[in-house]
Computed example of a mutant assay.
Amino acid sequence: MADADRLLGGYDPNAGRSAHAAARPQLIPVPSLLRALLSEHLDPGYAAAAARRGGADAPRRGRERAFGWLWEALAALLIAAVFAAAVAQARSVAPGVRDAQQLLLQSVRSSESTAARLGKERSALTARVDDVQRRALAENAEGRRLLTRLDALSLAAASTAVIGPGLTVTVTDPGAGPNLSDVSKQRVNGSRQIILDRDLQLVVNSLWASGAEAISVGGVRIGPNVTIRQAGGAILVDNTPTSSPYQILAVGPPHGMRDVFDSSPGLQRLRLLEASYGVVVAVDVADGLSLPAGSIRDVKFAKQIGP
């Protein structure tokens, strides 16, 4: 087949004819359209045009690739320069940050020591005032009645230290546990903290209802102005952090308190946590419990409830 015929679609008018057998019937040529569909998947004109365009665009594509590589190299250099500047700045600032941290640490320790010293002075002055007050009121019958009333109010206000028999309730977090209780939304999976502030609040209220006369949590006396609250992962008792094991001391009639506390909502809550999470709960009767005096704050507005 001639090249001109191939460019026209592949039709050859002499296709199928036999030049050596003139007497035989002539064969009908295969239509050029079907033959082109089966053999020529791309029109030759398109192939020739693509070849011409490819030869003309090859230098331009080479220049585009070179510019692309150049921009990538510039971007890499810019990123490296930024990282180098950041590292250099961090190294230059690090000594100042360490000095600031040390200064803040020293300031915190100094404030803590000052607060401890002032607390001791306050306790000593409070004891002196109480001694002078008692000696002045013990001289007559009216003063002694007033002193008895003041002692009762001081016990209710948790302003005096208390020593006596009572109950010790020790609650220890076991570690990570499944979320089985109704407060699972407030707990973090894998966290070692199971006991929450409201658990301790319920135990303290149950001890009050059981007949306790004075209570302390983690060494902090519970009084009218003392709160137990959650702050992130810590439990604060009167703004003092406390951690597991949580020790709750309650001064009062030990056996009577034990009988009532065994069926109280607070102990039932602890038993539920013990069964669900493995919390360790220990309730013991003890003698000679020593509870410190609580902090005294001015009450601006108060109203007596009940008789």
Rank of each mutant, 00 (worst) to 15 (best):
K300V: 13
E142Q: 14
R24G: 12
A136C: 05
A21G: 04
L77K: 07
A51R: 15
L42A: 13
A88K: 07
V217C: 02
D57K: 08
E72K: 10
Q89P: 01
D43Q: 10
L37E: 08
L291K: 03
A231M: 10
P174R: 03
S290L: 09
L118T: 06
R98A: 11
P13L: 03
A15H: 12
A156R: 13
P95C: 02
L146K: 06
G232C: 03
S107M: 09
D182S: 14
L155C: 00
M1Y: 07
P59Y: 02
L180N: 12
W69I: 06
S113E: 09
D173R: 01
D99N: 13
P253C: 00
D43M: 03
V97W: 06
L70C: 08
G10Y: 14
Q102V: 07
G166C: 03
F67M: 13
S243Y: 06
D182C: 03
V299I: 15
K303Y: 06
W208L: 06
T240P: 01
G211M: 03
A158T: 05
A282C: 04
L155D: 09
L153Y: 08
S110E: 11
V171Q: 01
R271Y: 06
Q101A: 15
S32W: 15
W71K: 10
I235S: 04
V217N: 00
A73G: 10
R145H: 07
D131P: 00
G177W: 00
V285H: 01
G278C: 02
R258E: 13
A302S: 14
L103S: 14
G119A: 12
F301C: 04
R149Q: 14
Q26I: 08
G9K: 04
P307V: 07
Q186E: 15
V237E: 02
L78P: 00
G9F: 00
Q304S: 08
P292A: 09
R221L: 03
W71Q: 11
L42T: 15
L150G: 03
Y11V: 12
S263F: 11
E213N: 15
I296H: 05
S154W: 05
V97F: 08
I235D: 02
A156F: 05
V279E: 01
S191W: 01
L196C: 04
A15C: 10
K120T: 12
V129C: 06
G288R: 04
V204E: 11
T148V: 12
V87G: 07
L267P: 00
P265K: 03
R149L: 13
V203D: 00
S244Y: 00
A86T: 07
L200D: 02
N225W: 04
Y277S: 06
A22W: 11
R229C: 01
L207V: 01
N189M: 11
A176G: 08
D57G: 05
R145C: 03
R117S: 10
V203R: 00
D3R: 14
A234K: 10
I195K: 01
S263E: 12
P253F: 01
R187F: 01
R258T: 04
E121F: 08
R63Y: 05
A76M: 08
G223Q: 02
A127E: 12
P307Q: 06
E142R: 14
L27M: 10
R24Y: 10
P253V: 02
A250R: 00
A81S: 07
D5G: 04
I194T: 11
R109L: 11
L180W: 02
